[in-house]
Amino acid sequence: MNLTEAYAKEIEAVFAEAAEEIGRFPAPFDEKGQALLEAANPLRANAGTNLITFLLPFWLKESASADEGLCKDLAVGNVFAMLQFFLLDDVMDEGDRLGRAKVTEALVLGQWLQDSFQRYYGRRFGTEAPLWPYYREYLAAWATAVSREGASPADPRDPSGLAGKSALVKLCAAGMLSMAGREDRLPVLEEALDLVLATLQLSDDWADWREDLADENRNAFLTLAREKLAWPEGQPLDERAVKRAVYQADAVGELAGIVRTYGERLRELEGVPGVLLIFCDKIYEGLRRDAEEAEETVVRLALGGGLSYILSKKEK
């Protein structure tokens, strides 16, 4: 199942409405906001994006006995929050490189997006709604996670730690369940979402390890690489060492194994929407393929020798 294709109609509708709302921001934030939105649309080619953020309300529709309108409003609200956090992340990670003008632009656009998020959620949840204490709880989890990031090595086996930065993704679940009078189901769903978000974070860490070498503690895959290599504490990793962990110590295989245990735990939880399992399985399959490709490279090199390997690479 290709999730983007399966939910194309919903994605189209959500992004169209978000574009309309952003189009009402004062210039130049209308255009800049729409460009940012477009770049995050999975229906556009080469868009790197986060399906779970805006599809989760639809995935929870049945468990929360929700109507389509509620799912859509929360999905659109989530898009605004997602974009706002993209901007915040950029400023946190690259603020000194971006310069004052770009930082100002990002933070101002972020404020407009935050305002839109509040308006969309506010339509559905009044000031006294049980949702808002959950909002503060998830916001606190996010704040703790980003403030402490890098202070100690990210732990690949700690799902709630890995999911901390994305805690606000759980907000729509809290909202939908509280509206349906099913808040009793929230702890299970929160655990399930932590497992899914942790899986996504691990996949992200594997893909981005090179960029994170300068700040190893942020990246759980690098923690795993150190472990597999029995790398001396206090000595920074380098690219060659991490590749050795990949090709000679099955670091990606180990990562896939951890993700599989998250999937197994997810299956033990009752009432988790099937699509969340599919989502995690796909990530697991991607990691397994990467681990197998690494092993194939090693075998090819060992059997065919260096010349065959180098020439076959140049042919590609």
């Binding site: 992200d204 000679q248 990467d290 690494a294 090199l301 260096g306």
Partner: peptide
């Protein structure tokens, strides 16, 4: 028996990642 170069010296790893943030 030819010893090929170490994989970390000649290989590029590529990720099959399909979901991103």
């Amino acid at each position: 028996l030819t010893l090929p170069p170490k994989p970390e010296d000649v290989a590029d790893d590529r990720s099959n990642r399909n979901f991103v943030w």
